[in-house]
Structures are given as structure tokens and as C-alpha cells.
């Protein structure tokens, strides 16, 4: 009950509450920073596998390859977002009733946009590198261990 005398004060002189931060356009920045963080993590992951004794095993080489591809994908997507933002909305042409829009190739931006939008050409191989790596690790633990080192997990 100590602060009860503040209530009339607030009612008498209302003002903007500057202590509360409004969130506006930081979404794209956050997303791009997350891409860079993801990229750095994948590079570090791939590099650490290569520096370790795991690299002698094929499944782990596949895991490292997947990490490199995913790092490349992040770079691709990072650049792609900038290109997407730089491309004018008039470049996309869509007639009424047309399901798929068309791209007007007015400049290098539209061509780059067309290319970077096919980022799954990197992401899918990355995922399947991880899959084949994991499959190799799983198979190695089901077999008798080799005489030297670990065959997988």
C-alpha cells in the first residue's frame, strides 16, 4: 500500500511509457543473424570432425560433408534474403487465375532471385549426407568393432 499515492499522479499526467520497448522491424535482422550463427556452427562442426580421429571413418566424413553443405546453404540463404528484398515487387507478374507467377527478367536481380530461390538444391543433399552418415554409424555399431579405433558412434 506504500505506492498507492502514485495512482492519482498517473491519472493526472499520463505520458508514453518509454520503459516498454516496442518491437518493429528487427525480424529480418534477427533472421539474418541466425543464419550467420547457423553458418558458423556448421563450419565449426565440420572443422572439428575433420580435426578429430572420427574423420578416418566414412560415416563421419559424410557428416562433415553435410555440415559444409548446410554452411553453404546458410550463406546462400543469407545472400538470397538480401536479393529478395532488393527485387522490386513489379518483377513478379501474375495474371488473375494464374496459379504460378512469372518473373520479369529486367536486371541481374531477377536472375539472381531465380537462382537463390532454389536453395533446396543445397539443403536436401546436406540432409541426405547426414542421413547416410547416420546410417553408416548405425551399421557400424551393429557389427563387431574393428581392431583399431571406433568405426562410428
Amino acid at each position: 500500500m506504500d505506492g498507492v499515492w502514485l495512482v492519482p499522479l498517473a491519472l493526472v499526467a499520463p505520458s508514453p511509457v518509454f520503459a516498454l520497448q516496442t518491437h518493429g522491424g528487427e525480424g529480418p535482422y534477427l533472421h539474418q543473424m541466425a543464419h550467420l550463427l547457423f553458418l558458423a556452427a556448421m563450419v565449426l562442426f565440420a572443422w572439428r570432425i575433420q580435426q578429430s580421429r572420427l574423420i578416418v571413418h566414412r560415416p563421419w566424413r559424410l557428416m562433415a560433408a553435410g555440415a559444409w553443405l548446410l554452411a553453404l546453404w546458410n550463406l546462400w540463404a543469407f545472400v538470397g534474403h538480401f536479393i529478395e528484398d532488393a527485387m522490386p515487387a513489379t518483377s513478379l507478374l501474375q495474371e488473375p487465375g494464374q496459379a504460378v507467377p512469372w518473373l520479369a527478367l529486367a536486371s541481374w536481380r531477377e536472375v539472381a532471385y531465380f537462382v537463390v530461390k532454389m536453395d533446396h538444391l543445397l539443403a536436401v543433399p546436406a540432409i541426405f549426407c547426414f542421413y547416410f552418415g547416420m546410417r553408416g554409424i548405425y551399421r557400424s555399431i551393429r557389427q563387431p568393432p574393428p581392431p583399431t579405433g571406433r568405426g562410428g558412434a
Binding site: 507467377p101 518473373l103 531477377e110 531465380f114 532454389m118 533446396h120 536436401v124
Partner: peptide, 17 residues
């Protein structure tokens, strides 16, 4: 002006996803 359908991009996007 040259135009290009985004169908390949969409197809790759859907299949890739």
C-alpha cells in the same frame, strides 16, 4: 521483356521441402 515461369522454383521448393 523476357519472362520466366517460377514453376521450376516452386516445384523444387515443394519436392525439396
Amino acid at each position: 521483356m523476357t519472362t520466366l515461369s517460377l514453376l521450376p522454383v516452386w516445384a523444387i521448393d515443394v519436392i525439396g521441402s
